[in-house]
Design a protein around this nucleic acid. Structure first.
Length: 462
RNA sequence: GCUCCCUUCGUCUAGUGGCCUAGGACGCUGGCCUCUCACGCCGGUAACAGGGGUUCGAAUCCCCUAGGGAGCGCCA
């Protein structure tokens, strides 16, 4: 049997990291078993679904490199099929028309709550034999007795009693189908073998299984993965900062880091922290998914991002860095090869934004020393030392890291300074900041001409 | 309120009855390295929610309590 999994987001917002993890686990499971991964857009809520959200979801999946074998399918394009299954259900006595109004239902719900009962439909129309009408909804006739057992891959065996369940609405009065019904029809039609989704759906599962049975379909296997909590342990929301996958991208996070982080959040393989895609596919197993909700830890994500910035090929990082540099007005043709700059910066940036900012002075005509602290450091070196260095640089035959280093050492000695006492003011002079790669590397990369110009300008009286 | 789920360091987790005076990672922190910032290396900090059982032995099995979460929509 071919394993078939699906990711079924509703396009009512961006792709957030909880959804991304659900998608990742479904993708991994399919890949591990040489199965098929299907993307389905659950857009039956015409009110809240937007094309922008669809685009955001697709974009997020692409960024994370989660490719799908089938889809994206849109539920709004399958309304004929839902109608067909709906009439089948009605014809076989598994569903019925209900004419109770929203106001009536509301009232009964309130009364049940007041009586400390679980609010649910009282099945008043179940045997009434109503026919179709403009106000009528269609309800599924849930079994009245017995129980439904969900053998969940992460939660274990969960038993629901049918008398706890009510007759849910599967088609609205305007004829459109509802979520719990479309999901059943789609999972059945698309031959989904493993439903991997958030555990907020665990309570829906017995009703879906009952519908599947009414349709003579074999229920898939289920795996309900816990939700992701914010840093404070509360439910994830906008106020927790970056929760959108695209926002992480914009903040300079690598998909490798995000995927690794999400993978490891609520799942473990012993003490291993870093996983390649191939390892993830090979090692992933639903049974190792932790059953409890996990809080997001932004610092650890940052650490992982740094790890991948550090270890991925410099040329690769350079390509990803380009847009961040362009955004900051850097002219990449007026400076050293970007890959060389990345090589120098790779161990000193946690995000691409940070790297772009630290790379900027390589691609600017001039630097400004705005910070008073930096001006003070610059002033700590005798003007003559900077001038001597500029002269020595000019006279120096070859321009490499080694020769630059030797010149710096010679000038420092000549001026009666330690290497460090000269290096830091020089750093301020040529980069405009107190932070950069080693000064010899920085100068070598920046080029003789710019170094000399900046040294002279820093030495000039103001 | 009812039903369902969950509970190991601050956080993510290892642990499936003895290897646990509970391991790793992030964070925080002391030190080393050092021209800045980083990287790297060495060390420290900190947890089995509580209570009852079962057992020679429990973080691991059972029960209860407490706490957290989800669902109970003509939302998905």
């Amino acid at each position: 049997m071919t394993i078939r999994t699906r990711f079924a987001p509703s396009p009512t917002g961006y792709l957030h990291i909880g959804g991304a993890r659900t998608a990742l686990y479904s993708w991994l499971f399919a890949r591990k078993h040489q199965g098929r991964f299907i993307l389905r857009i659950e857009d039956t809520d015409l009110e809240r679904s937007t094309p922008e959200s669809v685009a955001a979801i697709l974009e997020g999946m692409a960024f994370l490199n989660l490719d799908y074998d089938e889809g994206p399918f849109y539920q709004t394009e399958r309304f004929d099929r839902y109608r067909e299954v709906l009439s089948e259900l009605i014809a076989h006595g598994h569903a019925y028309y209900c004419t109770c109004t929203k106001a009536e239902l509301e009232e009964r719900r309130a009364a049940q709550m007041a009586r400390k009962e679980k609010p649910r439909y009282d099945r008043r129309c179940r045997e009434a034999g109503h026919g179709p009408s403009p106000e009528a909804v269609v309800r599924f006739k849930n079994p009245l007795s017995g129980e439904v057992v969900v053998d969940d891959a992460v939660k274990g065996r969960v038993v629901f009693r049918n008398d706890e369940l009510d007759d849910l609405i599967i088609a609205r009065s305007d004829g459109t189908p509802t979520y719990n019904f479309t999901v059943v029809v789609d999972d059945m039609d698309m031959g989904i073998t493993h439903v991997i989704r958030g555990d907020d759906h665990l309570n829906n599962t017995p009703r879906q299984i009952n519908m599947l049975r009414a349709l003579d379909a074999r229920p898939p296997a289920y795996a309900h993965i816990p939700m992701i909590l914010g840093e404070d342990g509360a439910r994830l929301s906008k106020r927790h900062g970056a929760v959108s996958v695209m926002q992480y991208r914009d903040e300079g996070y690598l998909p490798e880091a995000l995927i690794n982080y999400l993978m490891r959040l609520g799942w473990a393989h012993g003490d291993q922290e870093i996983f390649t895609r191939a390892e993830m596919i090979a090692l992933f197993d639903l049974k190792d998914v932790h059953a409890a909700a996990a809080a997001i830890n932004p610092k650890k994500l940052l650490w992982l991002n740094q790890h991948y910035i550090k270890t991925l090929p410099a040329a690769d990082i350079a390509e990803r860095l380009r847009p961040f540099l362009a955004e900051r007005g850097a002219d990449l043709t007026a400076g050293p090869a970007l890959t060389d700059v990345v090589l120098a910066l790779q161990e000193r940036a946690k995000t691409l934004i940070e790297m772009a900012e630290h790379a900027l002075f390589f691609y600017r005509q001039e630097v400004a020393i705005g910070d008073p602290k930096n001006q003070a450091i610059l002033a700590s070196a005798p003007r003559a030392a900077l001038e001597a260095l500029a002269a020595a640089f000019t006279a120096q035959p070859a321009w490499t890291r080694e020769t630059v280093h030797a010149t710096l050492e010679a000038v420092a000695e000549g001026q009666g300074l330690t290497f460090g006492k000269l290096a830091q003011p020089v750093r301020i002079a040529v980069t405009g900041t107190s932070i950069s790669p080693p000064i010899d590397v920085t100068c070598a990369l920046l080029g003789r001409e710019r170094c000399v110009t900046r040294l002279k300008s820093a030495a000039a009286p103001r």
